[in-house]
Design a protein around this nucleic acid. Structure first.
Lengths: 339, 339
DNA sequence: ATGAAAGCGCTAACAT
DNA sequence: ATGTTAGCGCTTTCAT
């Protein structure tokens, strides 16, 4: 690494081209007012000195950073990967880059990121973090562009893009009922998250509609969405006297863990247990049996969230969006698979 | 979102505290020269006006952004998630944030990111992208801090953190041989990638050492590391007259896809096929059978890469690092599983 | 110990 | 059409 190599600034170009910094700036910002002749001279100088305008200078002047903050709880859930890809694709088309922020459910990290928005290091924020402090975020949203993606605040003021979790859960459970199950368990995450409450509501609505009892012992709450938690949840269910015949897990990662616990359970007496997940991550086609699930349009959610944020950053108003979900029936809920 | 709300600047604080901007700056930078009394006054004003120093201003002045660029080919491979977590954890401790850059193997994106480094939007770069243009990167590295993580240039000048891919592959294949396999196939990615060449070299070395033939038709090259590619690779092998009895796949994602193809192959005549992967992503314990693999210390690789880069950004020299890998034996290579 | 002032690289209002 | 210049918010040197 060469030390002391100074990078060309706009002034160097101006001098080299025999013009002023304003002209150089105009050339770079595609200002049509510049003569073709002048433009050529400037562009030659730019080539010559291999000039790149400093974002630092430009950003300070325009007080824009062209950066979007993206808050996620953890990178380990593949659910977020597809969304991020959507955000990135939409952002890059409009010369925005994303600053990925993994909060790991740590409030001190959250603070760092909220401050980055306050002190202009980023122009706006997309939050996918269910653990975020809503009071602080709402306060921030009064003065800065913020969009929710996936997890949001019901009846809140921050625009969001999400799906109808209650309806999707209802459909998943109804599918279990229609395929002959009467004892249906729920592996849910903690009820402090909106999506957890909504999916539980959908689960309960489906059971009620078909006059099936809601049994406390068939509802498991896990600490996180890891495979391990799903497996533990299933183990608890398998220990029950009165075992369920089907399980609805609120994420594919939980469902996959649950199916693994089923694999490893060598009680040949027990009846097969159907499993349905939520998200449709790509892994869900790789399990054996393949996993029935609710598809979320993750890539589109990301694109939408980014576009909403970019509008917001231009000062436009935006409306929240509910995207379509879809029931995907695979082997894990096919009775035949187990016969 | 309130419009027109102006954020407090360092001058506002100076005025409020009845001091100068220099003093406020000193307080913020923990300059010990400030009197306790003055410091208190300033801190009160900071509280009062809820002041956050603008990174934009600070960055321009110090010509540092406290941002590290992280280049990855795609977010969809979970292999990168753990590494990124390591980078982020190490970075945040030192007040660095990461700018995640998915190149998607598109050269135009690559250019965007390389330029961000040139024009000071980021202080340094960690590249995990095997598709990157080495000429450009080497040129950039002459003037800017760059570190390779996982994929690197052999005998190049850019420091890297990686594992011994050749040795790891050798061990994986030797394990297949020791468990009784004589016909061993390789599902590799494209040979333009260093890791692909090294792993193939290890594969060939193990075969040679045990006097097993290297058969062209048992070596598959895939376009990417997706599940689908792994499945297609296995299908090709299953169509062969002379089928292998074991497969070494250069990534867990490929291996998992390959195992899925095995699941779906209903030829009851064929002998079982052992599979070993590479990476030890968390999903590899969720398949049935569970996947034998080579563990890479992904989190530690990330931490190391970030620390190396931070040293480099301070102007220190750093040495490349090879971290330990580990053979993980699970069900997919246990002969008993198939009997 | 504190303050005044220069200046980082750029854009844009204003002047020519 | 082009140039001059102020100033974005901060750090830091130099003076007091």
């Amino acid at each position: 690494m060469k030390v002391g190599v100074t990078v060309a600034t706009i002034r160097d170009i101006a001098k080299e081209a025999g013009g002023s910094v304003a002209t150089v700036s105009r050339v770079f910002n595609d200002n049509q007012i510049v003569t073709e002749k002048t433009r050529e001279k400037v562009e030659l100088a730019i080539q010559e000195l291999n000039y790149q305008p400093s974002m630092l200078g430009r950003n300070l002047r325009t007080s824009k950073s062209q950066l979007m903050l993206v808050l996620i709880p953890s990178t380990s859930n593949p659910f977020y990967s597809e969304i991020i890809k959507g955000i990135q694709d939409a952002g890059i088309t409009n010369h925005y880059n994303i600053l990925l922020c993994e909060t790991d459910a740590k409030p001190e990290r959250e603070n760092i990121y909220l401050n980055m928005l306050k002190n202009k290091l980023a122009d706006g924020m997309i939050s996918m973090d269910p653990t975020i402090n809503l009071n602080k975020l709402n306060e921030l949203a009064e003065t800065h562009p913020v969009i929710f993606c996936s997890e949001y605040e019901q009846d809140g003021v921050i625009p969001y893009v999400s799906i109808d979790s209650e309806m999707a859960a209802y459909e998943a459970v109804k599918h279990l009922i229609m395929t002959g199950n009467k004892k249906i368990a729920l592996i849910n995450s903690e009820k402090k998250y909106l999506y957890a409450r909504l999916r539980q509501a959908g689960y309960e609505r489906a059971l009620k509609e078909f006059n099936l009892p809601i049994q406390e012992e068939w509802i498991i709450h896990t600490e996180d969405l890891g495979f391990e938690s799903g497996a533990q949840g299933m183990c608890k269910l398998l220990e029950l006297e009165d075992k369920p015949t089907a399980v609805f897990a609120v994420s594919d990662t939980l469902a996959i863990g649950a199916m693994k616990a089923l694999d490893m359970d060598h009680d040949q007496e027990r009846s097969p247990i159907a499993v349905i997940g939520f998200d449709n991550i790509s892994f869900s086609t790789m399990t054996n049996p393949t996993l029935s699930t609710i598809e979320q349009p993750m890539y589109r959610m990301g694109v939408n969230a980014a576009e909403m944020l970019m509008k917001r950053m231009k000062g436009e108003e935006v409306e929240s969006v509910i995207l379509d979900h879809k029931l995907i029936i695979r082997e894990s809920t096919l009775p035949s698979k187990y016969i």
